[in-house]
C-alpha cells in the first residue's frame, strides 16, 4: 500500500469574486524513501496540496469538492479533527519556509521541542522510550533527552547546551535545523517541507539539503518538497510533479522529467533558469502570466500561454498519459494516438 495516495483531489476556495477551483484533480502517489519535488509558479496550488494533506486548509473558505487523500489506506479527508491532530506531529511532519516566524521567540528552543516530544509521546509512548506508567517528571526528562538527541542529529553543535537558548540566539540555518528536528521528533512517515530553504543562504541551503537527504536515507521517509527552485529539485528529489493552475501537468522521476520534458510548460520553466552557456538576452522565459482561476480558460489551462497550442487544446483538460516508465504528461502532444482516433 502506498504511503500517500492522492486521488482526483478538487479543492474550491471561496472569495469575494466567487469560488475558484484551486486544485483541479490532483493525482499523486508517494512511496517510502521517495522525495517528491512539487514545483510550479506562485498560486499553482503546490502549497495548498501540502496543506491539504495535513488538513490545514481552513474550510470555509476552502471546500473539498471530490477526491481522497489516503495515508496508508486511511482517508484523511474524512478523518475527524482529533484524529488529524494525532497524525500531525506524529505520522505527518511539517516544515515551513520561514524559520524566524515559526519558533515562538518568548520560549527557549528546548521547551518548544520538548512540548512536541511530549505530544508525540502521548500518542505513542515508545517515542519517549519510557513505560506507559512513567511519571510526569520521568516523561519530561525522557522528552528532553530525546530533544537533545534530535538537535544533535540535525547538526546543532553542543546540543545539550544550546537547548536552553532562545530562538534569537540561533542563526537562520540553525533555526531551520531546529524546525526540522521538531518535525522529525514524532518519527513521521511523511514529511511535508514547504520551501524549507528559500529564506536561507545558498551555502546553508546546501547543508540543509544534505541533512534532509541523509534523514530520508536513514528513516525511509516519504517527502513532499514544495519549492519553486528547480535546482533544489534536480539535486535532491527522486521524483517531481510540475503543477500549473491547480493541475499536475507532468510528473515522474526527476531525471526523466528534467532530461526529457514533454509538456510545453515544463520545457518553458526549465528554459527560464539561466545556465552557464547562455548569452545575455537569450533567456527564454514564459510569456504571459498565470490564469485567473475564477474564470479559467477552457480545456488545458496552459493553452493561452502555450506556443504549441492547437484547437483541440481548448476542448477538455487533457488526461495524464504515460510517455515512458515513471513519466506521465497531461498534454495533447503526448497522446498522438488519441489525435489519430479523433
Amino acid at each position: 500500500m502506498a504511503l500517500l495516495e492522492i486521488r482526483d483531489l478538487h479543492l474550491g476556495m471561496r472569495s469575494f469574486e466567487g469560488e475558484a477551483h484551486v486544485l483541479n484533480g490532483i493525482h499523486l502517489t508517494v512511496e517510502r524513501g521517495e522525495i517528491w519535488g512539487i514545483v510550479g509558479e506562485t498560486g499553482c496550488g503546490k502549497s495548498l496540496t501540502g496543506l491539504s494533506i495535513s488538513r490545514l486548509v481552513s474550510t470555509p473558505p476552502g471546500r473539498y469538492i471530490t477526491g481522497s487523500i489516503s495515508l496508508e489506506g486511511r482517508n484523511l479527508l474524512t478523518a475527524s479533527e482529533p484524529e488529524m491532530q494525532s497524525l500531525r506531529g506524529r505520522r505527518i511532519g511539517m516544515i515551513f519556509q520561514d524559520p524566524t516566524t515559526n519558533l515562538n521567540p518568548a520560549f527557549r528552543v528546548g521547551e518548544q521541542i520538548v512540548d512536541v516530544a511530549l505530544h508525540a509521546g502521548g500518542l505513542d509512548p515508545s517515542i519517549l522510550g519510557v513505560g506507559a506508567k512513567a511519571s510526569r517528571s520521568e516523561r519530561k526528562k525522557a522528552a528532553r533527552n530525546l530533544a537533545i538527541d534530535m538537535l544533535a542529529k540535525v547538526g546543532i553543535p553542543k546540543a545539550g547546551e544550546r537547548i536552553d537558548d532562545y530562538p534569537h540566539q540561533f542563526s537562520g540555518g540553525m533555526r531551520q535545523r531546529v524546525l526540522i528536528a521538531m518535525a522529525l521528533i514524532g518519527r513521521p512517515d511523511l514529511l511535508i517541507a514547504d520551501e524549507p530553504t528559500t529564506a536561507l543562504d545558498v551555502s546553508v541551503q546546501a547543508q540543509i539539503l544534505r541533512l534532509l537527504y541523509d534523514l530520508v536515507q536513514e528513516h525511509q521517509l516519504g517527502v513532499l518538497l514544495i519549492t519553486h527552485n528547480l535546482g533544489v529539485v534536480a539535486q535532491i528529489c527522486t521524483h517531481v510533479a510540475v503543477m500549473y493552475a491547480g493541475n499536475i501537468i507532468e510528473s515522474g522521476s526527476v531525471r526523466e522529467v528534467f532530461k526529457n520534458p514533454n509538456h510545453p510548460y515544463t520545457t518553458g520553466l526549465l528554459a527560464s533558469v539561466p545556465t552557464a552557456k547562455m548569452k545575455r538576452g537569450e533567456l527564454q522565459g514564459l510569456p504571459g502570466s498565470v490564469p485567473n482561476l475564477l474564470a479559467p480558460p477552457p480545456g488545458c489551462r496552459f493553452a493561452p500561454r502555450c506556443a504549441a497550442v492547437q484547437p483541440r487544446c481548448t476542448a477538455a483538460i487533457p488526461p495524464s498519459v504515460a510517455v515512458a516508465a515513471h513519466h506521465e504528461v497531461a498534454c495533447v502532444l503526448a497522446e498522438p494516438h488519441a489525435s489519430a482516433a479523433a
Binding site: V202, L209, N229, G231, Q235, I236, V273, T275
Partner: peptide
C-alpha cells in the same frame, strides 16, 4: 553550493 537544475550534477 549553487544548485544547478541538472539531475546529473547532483552531489547526492
Amino acid at each position: 553550493a549553487m544548485p544547478e537544475p541538472d539531475p546529473d550534477r547532483s552531489p547526492f
